Amino acid sequence: MNDTLQWFKSSYSDSGGGNCVEVATAAHAVHLRDSKQSDGPTFTVEPVAWTAFIAWQS
Rank of each mutant, 00 (worst) to 15 (best):
T51Q: 15
T4E: 15
S35F: 03
S10D: 10
K9Y: 05
G40P: 08
S13K: 02
T25A: 08
P47L: 09
W56S: 14
N2A: 04
W56Q: 14
T4Q: 15
L32V: 12
G40E: 08
D3F: 05
T25F: 03
S35H: 05
T25P: 00
V30R: 04
Q6R: 12
A29K: 08
L32H: 11
N2G: 01
T44N: 05
Q37L: 12
G17Y: 03
A24Y: 04
G16E: 12
A27V: 07
S10W: 08
T44M: 07
M1G: 06
Q6H: 10
P41D: 11
A55P: 07
G18A: 07
L5G: 02
A24K: 02
W50K: 01
V48L: 12
R33H: 06
S15M: 07
R33N: 06
A26Y: 00
S11T: 14
I54V: 15
R33E: 05
W56A: 14
G16C: 11
T42L: 02
H28T: 13
V23A: 04
N19C: 09
G16T: 13
V45A: 10
G17M: 04
V48P: 03
D34V: 01
A49F: 07
W50Y: 14
S58G: 14
T25D: 05
V48H: 14
T25N: 06
A26G: 10
F43L: 15
A55E: 15
G16P: 01
V23G: 03
E46M: 12
T51D: 15
M1C: 00
A24T: 05
T42A: 03
V30C: 04
D3N: 10
S15N: 12
Q57N: 11
W50I: 01
D14I: 01
V30F: 03
A52M: 10
S15G: 12
E46L: 14
